[in-house]
Amino acid sequence: MRKLAGLALLLPPLLVFLGFFVGPLLYLFYVSLHASSQSELYGAGFTAANYAAILTDPFYRRILERTLATTLEILGLSLVIGYAAAFTIAGLPPRRRLFCLVLLLFPLMVSNVVRAYGWVALLGRRGVLSTALRDAGIIDRPLTILYTTDAVVIGLLTILLPYMIISIANALASIDRAYGEAAQALGAGPVRRFLHVTLPLSSPGIASGMLLVFLLTLSAYVTVTLLGGPQSKMLVSLVYDGVVAFDWPRAAALAFTLLAAALLAAAIILAALRPRRVAGRG
């Protein structure tokens, strides 16, 4: 009876997720294995040509490399800045820590299009920064940073930074003080205590922060488009362009290339940081 009730509860959400999440993804993969077609959604017969084209075509190659380089830059910067901020926040008294964390949650709730718009207004040739710097006599020509990969890095870094800070701050706040005190009693200085006690114990927070930043960077089409312009396209822009061109199989193959990159990165991050080791597993 209890089992039956459990099944009845599980069935509706499970069917929705299988029917509209897992199913469509499998179908997308199926489409990616076909040639393009002018009249149909996809051509007849199986082929791996879409994937081969993505991996060999120099145009795709260049964009793949740019995507990787930009993503790594965002990841590195957000880790360093995020850790510093998280370290400061984790040391605050509980009420102020809560306030600081809520202050970071609020921007996460604002749509990315609004946050990217803020950077367009700041970084544009006649934007807020350009005008202010010229009025102050610091520069004599307008800023040309908007529509470059630098603008994409700045925008995505600041949009995703709260994820990194919150993840690490929560991990830091849950570390038992006794570990640090024990290390101190055994004569470890502050730097050694940080490197050998705090840093390894905060690795679950680092891992989840890095995963979130990496995965969200890969699919940030709107931010990349608004700040990078046509010259700084990333992998995700190609997926969109494929859809606009009604080349479904190519768009599908690009989407799965993106997914493969995401899974590979997730595996590398988890293998390098082994966050489960902190909980005594793995």
Binding site: P24, L25, Y27, V243, L259
Partner: peptide
């Protein structure tokens, strides 16, 4: 939460079309 939602969007679009 972590799945690249742009891929979900594309998958749903194709599925809805079909």
């Amino acid at each position: 939460l972590v799945f690249p939602t742009i891929i979900l969007g594309l998958a749903l679009l194709l599925f809805y079309k079909t």
